[in-house]
Design a binder for these strands. Structure first.
Lengths: 217, 217
DNA sequence: ATCTCAATACGACAAATGTCTTATTTGTTG
DNA sequence: CAACAAATAAGACATTTGTCGTATTGAGAT
């Protein structure tokens, strides 16, 4: 079974160049489609998400590669994304990793390196250009260099809502929470409804994930 | 100028095996000496610290590889240490990186991989076996999982069950998971039922919590 | 050749969850 | 005081989830 690959890249010339590189291995790799930006890729994935690997550019108009990677890895966790970029600054690397990318290669890598990266990713590894591996280790050694003041979105959850959210995150159901907080199950449900609206989610798991991500709980 | 390499390894057989591997490239590499443990290596370094790379075992008597790496990188910051080990658990990887190791390879890597690792390290990169790169990324994504004393319980989840669990953790419902994995919703439910039994839980949140705690996902 | 298990799949039913509407009480703030 | 937000509560309905039982297929192990 061939490896099904999609590409996200706004620049026509580069996109073609990647496709050419992949064609060198067309006994192993099947190029599926290319998105001109994040939105375009997402639209195409909705029609066909039978994809193993996405090669993702970071710099794209409309929706960039990092946001796109985040959405893809939330919606299609089985698809692995490899970031391909000319940049190698720490912030981008860190954000890419946080977004769920499995690897990070420089754009001018040789065709064989890209193939290796793809197979490596599918075998449970993380393909990284050595220089990027080095920088990610630096980040691991010294995590406080990471500016944690990202987003700082204010969801304005009330004290009670946060309490409920904490209980939710423990896997308790409405009745258990109501008993713990000495309020009726109806009220718990109402709180949760309000939490969902404030966090823009529609189920427990997503609420807890988002709350953890934003240090609400 | 040849690359000067030292080895720290208590096991005679393995030490010899490494030396043999290095000899395959004796036009590029010059094997200098071997320490039987951390203390021994340090003593030898005092006599001759004109070394480029140390290949360091972790498991050694008297003084282990992590402590030794820490001392070496403090005392001889110009020397780069590559950890060679059979283990790949997160705690060791993290500690090794903290100790100042520049790379982390599995002991059974092929000779050429070790050579590549050495040159990579000298060129400013960080050699890591893909599986280790993957784990270090996991650490970067979620630093609080470090040193959570993994009880190493074996829940014996199948590969497919773990995939399903990962999707669950993203907040996806049965239908979405079934579409992502190209199986029927019934099958997804069956997998989840089996997961619950194996983890001794009875809902999604608890399953995901337990899986995270035990590094299953 | 047989056994076992992972992976696949369906049906049924009860319980929990998500969504919407409405309503009362209390505390805060302009 | 009036307006507003937070916390409380209930009813109704559709959807999702949790828990059974049952069954087929294919890969590996014995």
């Amino acid at each position: 079974m061939k490896i099904k690959v999609a590409i996200a890249e706004d620049n026509d010339f580069l996109a073609t160049s990647f496709e050419e590189k992949l064609k060198l291995f067309d006994n192993q790799i099947e190029f599926k489609f290319r998105g001109k930006n994040g939105n375009d890729l997402l639209k195409k994935l909705e029609e066909n998400h039978n994809i193993d690997i996405i090669l993702m550019d970071i710099e794209m108009p409309e929706m960039d590669g990092i946001l796109t990677t985040e959405i893809v890895s939330q919606k299609y966790p089985q698809i692995k994304t490899i970031i391909l970029t000319i940049f190698d600054d720490e912030e981008k690397i860190f954000k890419s990793i946080q977004s769920g990318a499995i690897g990070y290669l420089l754009k001018d890598e040789k065709p064989i390196t890209i193939l290796n990266g793809i197979t490596m990713a599918l075998e449970g590894g993380a393909p990284m250009s050595p220089i990027i591996a080095y920088k990610s280790l630096e980040l691991l050694r010294n995590p406080n260099r990471i500016s944690l003041e990202n987003s700082k979105e204010d969801f304005a959850l009330s004290k009670r809502e946060i309490e409920v959210l904490e209980q939710l995150s423990q896997g308790l159901d409405y009745n258990e929470i109501s008993e713990n907080l000495f309020i009726s199950p109806s009220t718990v449900r109402k709180h949760i409804e309000n939490i969902y609206k404030k966090l823009h989610v529609n189920n427990k798991m997503k609420a807890v994930k988002k709350a953890l991500k934003h240090n609400i709980i």
